[in-house]
Amino acid sequence: MSAGLAVLSSGFRGFARYVSGVLGADAYAKYLEHHRASGHSGPPLTEREFWRDRTDRQDANPQGRCC
């Protein structure tokens, strides 16, 4: 019973993680990872700054959405 529940909950968590990846919700985490890995000298953007910067850059660089 509890084992089945565990499978279900891990399956659901996997699905939620997948959907959030598709939505792009993990963009900041990936940015931090990149920032760490590439050895930047300055501190990374804060979460708030990052998302601001992200949407503001989309203003100047629109992405198509298909029909």
């Binding site: 997948y18 959907v19 990846g21 598709v22 792009g24 963009a27 990936k30 940015y31 931090l32 990872e33 990149h34 920032h35 590439s38 910067d53 992200r54 850059r57 660089n61």
Partner: peptide, 15 residues
């Protein structure tokens, strides 16, 4: 880390 980001293939498929 912003526009050019390696993305898991299955996530990118959905995206």
């Amino acid at each position: 880390g912003k526009d050019y980001v390696r993305t898991d293939r299955n996530v990118l498929f959905g995206h």
